[in-house]
Design a protein around this nucleic acid. Structure first.
Lengths: 336, 336
DNA sequence: TTTGCCTGGGAAAAGGGTTTCCCACGACCA
DNA sequence: TGGTCGTGGGAAACCCTTTTCCCAGGCAAA
């Protein structure tokens, strides 16, 4: 009777025994290494197939020094930004047989340490650090780890690869879109000035306006919070004076949502009287506004995928040049 | 000079050599097993500490048959429901030294198969399957796996543990809250009737009304979609006739958002004229409505934690009775 | 002094693979 | 017929840790 000795998992010993070869030969046949005759190889493969043999990845990792796992450290509990990144990482890595350990560390240094130690003990091949703010590093030092680290959406050391959306390019696209729609009095309503991304987008907004022909009205940046409420308030403020904007570039989709609602309440038509562009392409918000929101997509899933692939390259020894890698954003045109 | 032989990772051999004992003794000392004299144990521990020795979890798993990893299979790409569950799972398991493999399978059977095989090859101790709909199973059969499986927010076989929020209890709480606020004409605006949760909540709504004293107006359930737009439409429909409700229980927070906005646009005051209760406690929505939304929280993080702990128990041999475990929801009272 | 027990510690196997050699054998050539 | 070479396959070491015996020696009891 053909079959493994017991109900336990079938090992390469079972395969070898039944194919009547040594385990060394079996291993070489199954991995395509070493010199084996065509027919022996086929026979071994057939037996392995029949037995449903699947090599124990743990045992294999022990010798190969590669565990085909990586850790994903994330600081973003709410997950609005992290989730697409995670999905991208996972998607980009599974093709390489690599699985991803998820570690939600919620800004807690002790917890982060615990997760990090667990990852290292489990011999991960590399680590991806991700957060929601580029200017806030993770609460633990990832320097001098025995494995490569790639940063995504969070601050890393200068010599490491850090992947971020190209906020500047995204903001410029947004402004140019408004200009192309014949808008001339374009203001920027965004989050707190303490956020680097807010300042970056604001700078890009100013530059884009300044370099436009014919020259639009002077730039005007309103810093506030990342909330709908602030969108309402900003509209109230903007419409309190005599000069009203005809285009508003919002720092995120929630603000844009507030702006759109406030405008509708005032009887201002979007996009007839004022065009709105958001930022994030948070579909659950952007698709539900009336009209649906034109916005900038940061392509976070793609960013995650790139992070994964970059990490793989580092693991396999390719030395990537460190620094900030900016990935392009896309303009999503909807109705606003 | 005290130190490991090379720059490689320090192994238990290094510890043993430097402490001048055998590896067997070192292992026993560090794990607190076997019989070792107090001083030898201390010496070994001190050496291990100095060397920064951390045992290789892979090698350890090889003998112990426990990898201290579990797989989390999720079908919910958007992650609104899954993310809190994931966070809870991770949080509940890290205390037990267990790490979580994240597998986003997006309803793709082949991809699911690939992930599942990778998990099994990596010798996970167990698997948590999660989705966003109880009535839609994952696109792969998790029966007869060599490891225990726990289901959360997704359909599992009858003999397995399946954790879900107690929709009935949550809905009843919502209705009772409205009744306690002296509301008598309470309607239920919810998602598609094809969703089991929608029907379940609707049944609970009906039952809660029927058993209330003094008897409120006849139940009225409006099925639609899970969108803001449907909230608007439902209000339009409800206010087209002569009899207007004074309480609305919404199937989710997005619908509630639409309802609240539509009411404000009509000049109906919330909660003076009509009280609203949502479902999900999706904070980003619920806190931004005007007024902030009173809603039902499904305690998904706690659900995730329970899923993790239940899985641990199954792994360690405790046989949990299979079936549907309903975890209580909480009423979150805000301004509506 | 012998016997027996207890104690602390070590040798070796096991866990499931991969890899480095090394060997046997047949073919080919002189 | 003897030597050389290429080929297919195997023995054993190795990866790192745990665990199962087993042993040596000290001490108390007989």
């Amino acid at each position: 009777m053909i079959g493994p000795t017991s109900s336990e998992r079938v090992t390469i010993y079972d395969v070898a025994r039944i194919a009547e070869v040594s385990v060394a030969t079996a291993s070489k046949a199954l991995n395509g290494t070493g010199r084996i005759s065509e027919q022996t190889r086929d026979r071994i493969k057939r037996v392995a197939q029949q037995l449903g043999f699947r090599p124990n990845a743990l045992a294999r990792s022990l010798t190969s020094k590669r565990s085909f796992t990586v850790g994903l450290l994330t600081d973003d509990t709410y997950g609005r930004f992290t989730l697409p990144v995670m999905a991208g990482v996972s998607e980009g890595l599974i093709d390489h047989g690599v699985s991803v350990f998820l570690c939600a560390v919620e800004g807690n240094p002790d917890l982060t340490r615990i997760h990090l130690d667990a990852l290292l003990d489990k011999q991960v091949d590399g680590i991806i650090a991700t957060g929601k703010r580029l200017d806030k590093p993770l609460p633990v030092d990832l320097h001098n780890l025995p494995v490569p680290v790639v940063y995504a959406l969070t601050a890393g050391p200068a010599d490491a690869v850090t992947l971020v959306p190209d906020d500047r390019q995204g903001a410029i696209q947004a402004v140019q879109h408004l200009i192309a729609r014949q808008r001339r009095r374009i203001v920027h309503v965004t989050g707190p000035e303490t956020f680097e991304v807010a300042r970056e987008r604001a700078r890009a907004y100013v530059d884009a306006l300044r370099s436009a022909e014919p020259a639009p009205a002077e730039p005007c940046v309103l810093y506030g919070t990342w909330s709908e409420r602030w969108g309402h308030e900003a509209v109230a403020r903007l419409w309190s004076g005599p000069d009203h904007p005809d285009g508003i570039f919002c720092g995120n989709d929630q603000i844009a949502r507030g702006v759109i609602d406030a405008l509708r309440e005032r009887g201002v038509r979007v996009p007839a009287d004022v065009s709105i562009v958001g930022f994030d392409n948070w579909e659950i918000v952007a698709e539900q506004t009336r009209p649906p929101l034109t916005t900038i997509d940061m392509n976070l899933k793609e960013l995650g995928r790139q992070a994964g692939l970059t990490l793989i390259r580092s693991i396999t020894g390719e030395r990537a040049p460190g620094g900030l890698w900016k990935l392009p954003c896309s303009l999503i045109v909807r109705g606003s």
